[in-house]
Design a protein around this nucleic acid. Structure first.
Length: 734
DNA sequence: CAACCTGCGGCCACT
DNA sequence: CCGCAGGTTG
């Protein structure tokens, strides 16, 4: 133990060995945050200040929770699974399962992921005959989740106008529907647990006495409800001593405001708890000086900061390499060549990451990597448990666990098709409304043809439930895949998709096998052992298992997904206005600062080498866009960079990049040539940067007409996109 | 009722 | 570009 502390720097050691009081640790990127957190737990246990049962550690991602467990297992002779370490959602799930009766839920309640939730809302709007033009399901979902993340139930929303009152009414209907169907969405997991503990005094006291040390990672990303949740668990009522809150965070890495995170919680915590210990960790052990200087320079443009500057003693290292490509295709080809060069020089593929702002960018990169034969792994995007065929299979399993799950029912009642069309379903939904019961339970009230066809489906589920009741989970899954007709359906599909989907179905069995192996043995003689746990696992960890670090593959992911990770070499691509910063962020208050924090996160992922790249033209959403260089690129001091392509400030369009590899399949030429063949724009060209006296610098994205009618379409970034008459507007090439 | 077609709208990040 | 909703046809 003393050894462990001896390897820490002074500030880290101070944080780890703080007395049993509240503490706020402002930990910069790469400052050893996870290390401090885990060593703190180990130190508390080893010095006898707390038992493993008395520790509660909360993280945001499953990845982080697993890593913490693994590190603790290496430091301590105790089984880390005995400790409560997990995500907010995972811990709440655990509490709600243990006290489902008190929380007003059946034992086998199901968890809705975002897509399930959206489907449930659409179904609700349909049964209530609500115009979904006036109440777009997505917006309603956002509204409901926003309220829940504030800890506000439908009955408690302040509504001052009719529109809000209607939305609140729908929120209430949605709550009722979820309760009827025994399903719980993500924010509900937290809100339910919060309400359970605040209303049930004995239970609350039980956990308050149990958890003496509560440690929170990524505290800057907590929302209001999560903070309340932590405060409630910390306790300290009626003269009892509160648990010690140890919160670790970095306001500069707060990137989840869009889902309700409030950086303000850091200041609120310090103020409300009169936190006696605030420690800054500013020494960075990850990145070379140039990378760190760039990160510091970028984040310095933000105004709302607690203030913190990272430093390193590792020397300046290599410059940041910048590449400006003609097209997204060129960018991807260059990138793959560079990756291959790094691998030739001995770098592991798994130490290389390609980061982007939006998942849409991964496709083109994957294409190039694939044709070059470079193995890669994509994180995020469409994850395993979110695939259509997998969700279908899970829906059958969910109906076995909980027949009242209408979302699951509606998903597979006619998949594979069994002659149950819109009419039958409508009859069923009307009846369900009348009897106020789930679709499944309503079938017995039907008559005529719907009764026969849907009745047969119910019979199928009953048969499946009985047949699988005592089977081990993987065998139960196998049985369901066969008897539901899912396998047969995908086998008969002629599309090549069928094959991949069959493999995914088999993969569910593997996932179930792994899950069983990692779980505690269930009590014997329980029907459907581990089924509900497995389904919760599928909802909460939509497919982390593809994060198989064993094989050597280049890692592709969004910047969000990269938070908390680090790599020897990082490629950050798509550094264009509109993409990064994302155009939607400019409309939101403080949106740009959040984008800049995201940029800061991206840059600080790199240990030795950072590449940033952009494309003058990019095919996105089916059309070619001409974007300006990202302002974030301009915020990196020039002295820290090395341009691999000629820098295009002042002057003509850049020359053909030195690093240019024409693809034999598709001869390269500037995309603009195809769009506006031979048009005379008075010396201007599409894709060119120009300056306008009023709108500033922009890029020409299109042109039409000729002679005195010639007009050009110019993207002025924040100033908007304008059509300008060439004979009127004065435009200077930049 | 199901398979196919077409036209329209979305389209940023994630538990 | 992609997926979905709605309409048409077999």
């Amino acid at each position: 133990m003393t050894d462990l502390i001896a390897t820490l720097n002074e500030e880290q050691a101070r944080a780890v060995t703080l007395p049993a009081q509240h503490a706020l640790i402002l930990a910069g990127a790469g400052s050893g945050k996870t290390r401090v957190l885990t060593t703190r737990i180990a130190w508390l246990i080893q010095t006898g200040q707390v038992t493993p049962q008395g520790v509660l550690a909360v993280t945001f991602t499953n990845k982080a929770a697993k890593e913490m467990q693994a590190r603790l297992a290496a430091m301590l002779p105790v089984n880390p699974k005995a400790m409560w370490i997990g995500t907010f959602h995972g811990l709440c799930n655990r509490l709600l399962r243990a006290h489902h009766r008190e929380a007003g839920l059946p034992q086998l309640f199901q968890i809705l992921d975002s897509a399930d939730q959206l489907a449930a809302i659409k179904r609700l709007l349909k049964t209530l005959n609500v115009d979904d033009e006036k109440f777009p399901p997505r917006e309603l979902q956002h509204f409901i989740n926003g309220q829940k993340e504030q800890g506000v139930r439908a009955a408690a929303v302040d509504a001052f106008d009719d529109f809000t009152r209607r939305r609140v009414a729908l929120y209430a209907e949605y709550e009722a529907q979820c309760q009827r169907e025994a399903v719980v969405d993500f924010p509900e997991l937290l809100l339910r647990t919060y309400e359970l503990l605040s209303r049930n005094e004995p239970l609350r006291h039980h956990y308050q006495r149990r958890f003496r040390h509560i440690l929170t990672d990524e505290f800057q990303d907590t929302n209001k409800l999560q903070y309340q949740w932590l405060k409630l668990l910390a306790g300290g009522e009626e003269g009892e001593a509160p648990a010690c809150l140890f919160c670790v965070g970095d306001d500069d890495q707060s990137i989840y405001r869009f889902r309700g995170a409030e950086v303000g919680n850091m200041l609120a915590f310090e103020r409300e708890f009169k936190v006696p210990n605030v420690i800054r960790l500013e020494q960075n052990y990850r990145s070379c000086g140039n990378i760190l200087d760039a990160a510091n320079a970028i984040i310095a443009n933000n105004t709302q900061r607690l203030g913190k500057e990272l430093w390193t003693d590792r020397g300046e290292g290599e410059p940041i390499r910048v590449y400006e490509a003609f097209t997204d295709g060129d960018e991807a080809r260059w990138l793959v060549d560079e990756v291959q060069a790094l691998v030739r020089d001995g770098m592991l593929r798994s130490d290389i990451a390609i980061l982007y702002r939006a998942n849409a960018l991964s496709r083109g990169l994957e294409h190039q990597l694939f044709s070059a034969g470079v193995s890669y792994r994509v994180y995020g995007g469409l994850r395993f448990f979110e695939r259509q065929e997998v969700k279908h299979a899970l829906a059958y399993l969910r109906l076995i666990a909980n027949p009242d799950d209408d979302t699951a029912f509606a998903r597979v009642v006619n998949f594979p098709t069994r002659g149950i069309g819109a009419r039958s379903l409508e009859a069923l939904q009307d009846a369900a409304r009348t009897y106020n019961s789930s679709l499944y339970a309503t079938v017995s009230h039907l008559s005529g043809k719907p009764r026969a066809s849907i009745g047969a489906f119910v019979q199928l589920i009953e048969t499946l439930r009985n047949a699988t009741a005592s089977l081990p989970l993987p065998e139960a899954v196998d049985h369901v895949l066969d008897q539901s007709g899912l396998r047969a359906h995908y086998e008969s599909q002629k599309e090549k998709d069928g094959r991949e989907r069959l493999e995914n179905l088999d993969e569910i069995i593997s996932a179930a096998t792994n899950f069983v192996a990692e779980s505690e043995a269930p009590e014997p003689d329980v029907a459907h052992p581990l089924l509900a746990d497995f389904l919760a696992h599928a909802s909460l960890e939509a497919g982390d298992h593809q994060a198989d670090a064993t094989d050597d593959a280049v890692q592709l992911m969004t910047v969000h997904a990269a938070k908390g990770l680090e790599f020897d070499a990082v490629f950050l691509c798509g550094l264009e206005e509109g993409l990064f910063p994302h155009e939607n962020s400019l409309m939101e208050t403080d949106g740009l600062e959040e984008e800049r924090r995201l940029m800061y996160v991206a840059v600080t992922r790199a240990r030795q080498r950072l590449y940033v790249s952009l494309a003058q033209s990019r095919m996105l959403h089916g059309q070619t866009r001409y974007n300006m260089r990202s302002r974030f690129l301009e915020e990196i001091p020039e002295a820290l960079t090395k341009w691999l392509t000629p820098r295009t400030s002042g002057g003509q369009m850049q020359a053909r990049p030195a690093y240019f590899t024409p693809s034999p399949a598709a001869p390269r030429r500037p995309a603009v040539a195809a769009r506006a063949p031979g048009r005379d724009l008075g010396g201007l060209r599409i894709g060119q940067n120009v300056r306008h006296a009023r709108f500033g610098v922009g890029v020409i994205v299109a042109a039409e007409g000729s002679g005195s009618d010639a007009r050009v379409h110019i993207n002025f970034g924040a100033q908007g996109v304008k059509w300008l008459l060439l004979s009127v507007a004065k435009l200077d090439p930049v």
